[in-house]
């Protein structure tokens, strides 16, 4: 299996020249008129599964997240106590993440904000990054913004994170020596074995990947991409991945939040 993946990627690597040699525009930012969500690159059946609000398996986590949101754990204050029953006050919020936390000056994504709330306002320990509970809460909060166009602030204190994420996106890495941009800017829409290469947007995450057979975070997806090019993956929740998340959000600006997405 590993070998098969490697061979496919190597073949692809051999065919893809760096942008300056091929004369391909770097496409940064990706122009609005060609911007397309990952759903556009799925088979009709997978797309239909995402669109089905009962059968989309991601809703198992949305339901769980809603329950957690409403219930205080171990006598602590519930999320709903501050953010409104049904999370009314958070509608639209997820479209503006990641963002720089005013108090600490650090970049936080939704996972980070939830854990911050737990520690500062609920006297609860932070949840593990890829735990079902953190995924459930993140998916629930993101789902509250479903349909809202992604729009993040990359100015001021966010600028350095944006630059960091941008660098990551355009830097070749791993044994296959591939940058994110080579697949997702220069070759999207083309075939790579059975797949059609997407533009690499994160607007449907946390998403249910058929490959994972579970819901997963955008950082887990980035981790898989790094492994796919045989690069050393970064830790989930790391500053690097949060910076990439910010760059991707800016790059996906205008695309609607789709959480919970279904991906192959």
């Amino acid at each position: 299996m590993i070998r098969a993946g490697l061979i496919a990627c190597l073949v692809f690597a051999a065919c893809s020249a760096p942008p300056e040699e091929a004369g391909t525009p770097v496409r940064d930012p990706l122009p609005d008129d060609i911007k397309r969500s990952g759903t556009a690159f799925l088979q009709p059946d997978t797309r239909a599964l995402q669109a089905d609000d009962f059968a989309n398996p991601g809703f198992l986590w949305i339901d769980r997240g809603e329950k957690l949101f409403r219930a205080g754990v171990d006598g602590s204050k519930a999320c709903a106590a501050c953010h409104g029953e049904d999370g009314a006050d958070l509608v639209g919020a997820a479209a503006h993440y990641p963002q720089v936390d005013a108090a600490s000056g650090e970049l936080v994504n939704i996972e980070g904000r939830i854990n911050q709330c737990r520690e500062q306002h609920q006297s609860l320990p932070p949840l593990d990054y890829e735990s079902d509970d953190l995924l459930a809460l993140t998916a629930y909060v993101s789902h509250l913004s479903r349909g809202e166009p992604v729009s993040v602030d990359v100015s001021g204190p966010a600028a350095r994170y944006y630059e960091m994420g941008r660098d990551y996106f355009f830097t070749r890495r791993g044994q296959l020596n591939l940058a994110c941009s080579q697949c997702h800017n220069e070759h999207w829409g083309e075939k790579l074995r059975g797949d059609t290469i997407s533009q690499g947007h994160g607007n449907a995450f946390p998403a249910y990947r058929l490959e994972w057979q579970t819901l997963g975070s955008l950082h887990r997806r980035l981790n898989d991409c790094d492994e796919g090019v045989r690069a050393e993956p970064m830790p989930l929740g790391s500053d690097t991945y949060k910076a990439v998340e910010l760059y991707l959000a800016k790059r996906a600006e205008g695309l609607p939040i789709e959480t919970p997405g279904v991906r192959r």
Binding site: M1, I2, A4, G5, A8, C9, F12, L192, R193, G194, D195, I197, E211, D224, C225, E227, G228, V229, R264
Partner: peptide, 9 residues
């Protein structure tokens, strides 16, 4: 059943 582009693991 098609083969995925990047096989992980």
């Amino acid at each position: 059943v098609t083969l995925a582009a990047c096989v992980i693991g």
